[in-house]
Amino acid sequence: MPTIYRYNRIIILTGLLVVAVISQAQELFPHNEPASNLPKRVIGIRPFFKAYPELGVVRQMYALRLMYGLTPKLTIMGTISVTNHHGKDLPPNLVSHIHSGTQTVYSTNNIQRGIKYPYLFSGIYLYAKYRFITVDRKNEHFRMAAYADWSNVGVPHDEAEPSLMDDTKGYGGGLIATYLKNHFAASFTGGFIIPGHYNGYSPDPGSPDVPTRIQYGKAAIYNLSFGYLWFPKQYSDYGQTNINLYMEFIGKSYEAAKVTQFGYVNVPIQTPLLEKGNYIELHPSVQAIFNSNLRIDLSIGLPIVRRSYARFYPVFYLGIQRYLFPKLKKKTSKTKENE
């Protein structure tokens, strides 16, 4: 094949990958995954940061996510994170007991907030998404995907609400449906979380720490995302900066936690932290994509229906993402000679 055609092919293929990534820019939701996938062999790197003020202390999470387009229909991701959300053990008064005569009365209580905790490595969170419905038209598409996620996070999380990425181990799954037309995109994610348990120790002042097990509540998640491509109104080149606006509703319902001490004592749940609950948060976001590659997301999370007891509000989010496109094979000296 003549050299000029080979190079043209490389440029066209790379261009197609870029187009595949940015042509649906308004569905690159900061908090939810769309049903669309990364193109095959494209790598995505996303360092991101979350923070919220908690009575004088700023709780922070630093995370790094790697994404890979295994096939055009299958994307896999891995995330690691470091947070100062939890101590090394359960908080002192979350689970306690008092001796009354010959009886021991166990209780769960609200913990003291605003305590400084060290930064701890949370664990590994894995996610895979398979697109199984694709209906594409000009400037319009509808796609559906199924996802599964798993985590080995083992921090002493002190609320019933599970969160696989940074609070609880376990697994989950669900469906994603995404519709895009012109400048608008909408996506719904419905799923479940089957969390694992935490085995650790609860401090008991004046006595040895008490072996404590917390089984977190199973959860259903229902997220709705809307995206709007604000700028440019019409593309003139791939280097143009994109500005996207998002409105994401994040909802979760979860069961109460089960707390066991010494392996056989079921501690009654008396705090909203460990009771069943549900909430919906609103996360308005703005996103800028530079040179079709560098993506910056900024958002703020607010409670609109009840609240999550796992955090305080507002929740600030900053994410930076970059795509690495595969190097297409260059001509070797042998092929040159053959030509």
Partner: peptide, 15 residues
């Protein structure tokens, strides 16, 4: 004020 509005239920019950 915003932070208070968002976390009022916790503040009311605990602080």
């Amino acid at each position: 004020l915003l932070r208070f509005e968002m976390n009022q239920d916790y503040i009311e019950k605990n602080l």
